[in-house]
Amino acid sequence: MKRLPWFLGQICSTIAVRSSHGVVFTTDRAYQPGEQVFISYGKKSNGELLLSYGFVPKEGTNPSDSVELSLSLKKSDKCYKEKLEALRKHGLSASQCYPIQITGWPLELMAYAYLAVSPPSMSPQFEEMAAAASNKSTTKKDLRYLEIEEKALQFILDSCESSISKYSKFLQASGSMDLDVTSPKQLNRGVFLKQLAVDLCTSEQRILFRAQHILRRRLRDMRSGELRALRIFDGLQNIFK
C-alpha cells in the first residue's frame, strides 16, 4: 500500500480497520474523484513515528517533534536529600526527562531547574517547586524566582549542551560505522536502519540546538542588563563623591 503524504495542517479523520484483505480507511466526508486525501498519524514525535510506523518525516515537516532532555540533581548539593525527598513526594526521582520542542519547553522542566539550583535558604519552597515539576500535577503553576532564574537557565543550558555532545558523538561515529554483513539484502536493511537512526538523531539534535540558542540569548540579555545596572550605579556613586 502506498504511504499517504505526511500532513498536519489540514487533517481528515480516518479510521483504519483491519480485514483479511488489507486495511480499510474510512473518511470523515465525501471526496470528489481525484481529490487529494491526507491522513494524520497523530501528534507524535519523530521517535514515536519511527517506532510505530517505521519512518522519520523530512526536516521541518513535523511540528509535534520533540526530544527528551534529561535533568539531574547534583549529589554534591548540600540540600540533595531534602530536594530528593520533595521530588519523591510527587512521584519524581533525582533524574527526570522532559520533552523539548522547537517552540520551547514545559513549565515542569523550568520548575525542576529552579529546584535543582535552589540554595539552602529556599528550602521552604522545595516542595512547591517539586509539585510544579510533576507531570502528574493537576495545576500548571508557572513559578518564577527571579533571584535564581539565571542559574536555572544556565542549568538547563548545561543539560542541553551535554545532550548535544552525545548526539554529535553518535553522528560522527555513524559516518564510519562498519556494517559486518554478507548478504545484499542484509546490507540494504542495515543501511536503511542506519539512515533512519541518523535522521532521527539529526532532527532531535536540531531541537536541542534551537533550545541552546534561545537559552544563550536569554542569558546574554539578562547578564548585559545586570552589567548596565551596575554601570549606572557606579556612575551615580561617582556623581555624589
Rank of each mutant, 00 (worst) to 15 (best):
Met1Trp: 06
Leu8Val: 11
Gln10Val: 07
Thr14Phe: 05
Thr14Ile: 13
Ala16Lys: 11
Arg18Pro: 03
Ser19Glu: 12
Gly22Arg: 05
Tyr31Trp: 13
Gln32Leu: 14
Pro33Ile: 04
Glu35Gln: 13
Ile39Leu: 14
Lys44Trp: 08
Lys44Phe: 03
Asn46Met: 03
Gly47Asp: 15
Glu48Tyr: 01
Leu49Pro: 00
Leu50Ser: 00
Pro57Asn: 07
Glu59Ile: 10
Glu59Arg: 12
Ser70Gln: 11
Lys74Cys: 05
Lys75Arg: 14
Ser76Pro: 01
Asp77Asn: 05
Asp77Met: 05
Lys78Tyr: 08
Lys78Glu: 14
Tyr80Val: 01
Lys81Trp: 07
Lys81Arg: 09
Glu85Gly: 14
Glu85Met: 13
Leu87Pro: 03
His90Met: 02
Cys97Gln: 12
Tyr98Thr: 03
Ile100Thr: 11
Gln101Asp: 04
Thr103Glu: 15
Ala111Gly: 00
Ala111Thr: 01
Tyr112Phe: 15
Ala116Glu: 01
Ser118Tyr: 00
Met122Thr: 05
Pro124Asn: 02
Pro124Trp: 05
Pro124Ala: 07
Glu127Lys: 05
Glu127Val: 09
Thr138Leu: 11
Thr138Pro: 04
Thr139Cys: 06
Lys140Gly: 04
Leu146Val: 07
Glu147Thr: 11
Leu153Thr: 07
Gln154Ser: 13
Phe155Lys: 15
Leu157Tyr: 10
Leu157Gln: 12
Leu157Pro: 05
Tyr167Glu: 04
Leu171Asp: 01
Leu171Trp: 04
Ser174His: 08
Gly175Arg: 15
Ser176Ile: 14
Met177Cys: 08
Met177Leu: 15
Thr182Ala: 13
Thr182Gly: 01
Lys185Phe: 00
Asn188Trp: 00
Arg189Leu: 13
Leu196Glu: 07
Val198Glu: 14
Thr202Tyr: 06
Ser203Pro: 02
Gln205Glu: 14
Leu208Asp: 00
Phe209Lys: 15
Phe209Glu: 11
Leu215Gly: 02
Arg217Gly: 05
Arg217Phe: 09
Asp221Met: 11
Asp221Gln: 13
Ser224Ile: 09
Gly225Thr: 09
Arg228Asn: 10
Arg228Glu: 11
Leu230Cys: 08
Arg231Asp: 09
Ile232Ser: 10
Gln237Trp: 06
Ile239Pro: 03
Ile239Tyr: 11
